[in-house]
């Protein structure tokens, strides 16, 4: 029996539902591009794939959970394409994801992942476990692999609060969908290395919320200092990086006012060193 409203589908995953019934809506659904004969040699040989990621996004654990933050710049070659882009997305009440890579597919994947988790929760009557969510995201990154050879990279950094372990968790991914858990902090994107260097110097286990937020913003500041692809605080336009706090009570946006306050202090300290 086939009805428009009752597709024969029996799976709690929205992503799988799309893959079967509406493949054109999934990132993997563009796979037809893959079979075109005019493909560059690199994709068939599986050779070096350059990963254009002009971004810095990072996550740091603190005593009650985890803080995730990202800069606001999007680039097109040497041009700045967008000064206010948001790279940190709320996924559900207890998790968030930050992205590096091609903006379009990245935002699409964040939306799809949001729908995926909500869909599961409604169908099954309960939320996926933190680990389950992280694994599902890994499968979605894996499904995007054909697009990576076309240059459309999606690289997520995922954080969630694990109610069973009562702690925040950080997951990073590789292009093939491999999922790796970080114990303390991590940063990805072109300025990721610079941000990690800063965090390595200042990170301690069990940091308080205020200190952690300050460290996150400092790491982003240093990354913007050394990396052209990362935007620092734009004092003229009043554009600042964004941050979210994920803990046992849920997810909260850090207000722009608070971020501006921290940057004002930071910049003042830097300025005094230059005198």
């Amino acid at each position: 029996m086939k009805l428009p409203f009752l597709p024969n589908h029996d799976d709690a995953s929205f992503f799988d539902f799309l893959t079967v019934h509406h493949p054109e809506l999934t990132p993997a659904g563009r796979r037809w591009v893959d079979s075109s004969p005019s493909l560059p040699e690199a994709s068939r040989s599986g050779g070096a794939v350059t990963v254009p990621q002009a971004t810095t996004v990072l996550a740091i654990k603190y005593q009650d959970g985890v803080i995730i933050a990202g800069d606001r710049r999007a680039t097109e070659g040497y041009q700045i394409a967008e000064r206010r882009i948001e790279k940190v997305f709320k996924i559900d009440d207890f998790s968030a994801m930050a992205i590096a890579g091609a903006a379009g597919p990245c935002i699409e994947m964040a939306r799809l992942f949001q729908t995926e988790l909500e869909h599961y929760e409604k169908l099954e009557g309960m939320q996926l476990s933190c680990e389950g969510k992280a694994n599902k995201l890994g499968q979605m990154v894996k499904a995007n692999l054909p697009m990576v050879f076309q240059g459309l990279v999606v690289m997520p950094l995922y954080v969630g609060y694990d109610h069973k372990r009562t702690e925040g968790r950080i997951f990073k991914y590789d292009l093939a969908g491999g999922r790796y858990e970080e114990s303390d902090y991590h940063a990805i994107g072109s300025g990721g290395k610079d941000a990690r260097n800063t965090m390595r110097e200042h990170f301690r286990r069990g940091l308080a919320e205020a200190e952690t937020l300050k460290l996150a913003l400092l790491a982003l500041y240093n990354a913007a200092d050394d990396d052209v692809g990362t935007g620092g605080p734009d004092l003229v336009r009043g554009i600042y990086p964004t941050a979210k706090i994920v803990n046992g009570t849920g997810i909260t946006d850090v207000s722009e006012q608070q971020i501006r306050g921290i940057y004002d202090g930071l910049i003042e300290t830097r300025r005094s060193k230059e005198r």
Binding site: L6, P7, L25, H119
Partner: peptide, 16 residues
């Protein structure tokens, strides 16, 4: 079954 179909319909429409 109807409930699940409805959720799928709604989520699909909201996503699309």
């Amino acid at each position: 079954n109807l409930r699940k179909a409805g959720i799928r319909h709604a989520d699909l429409k909201g996503f699309m």
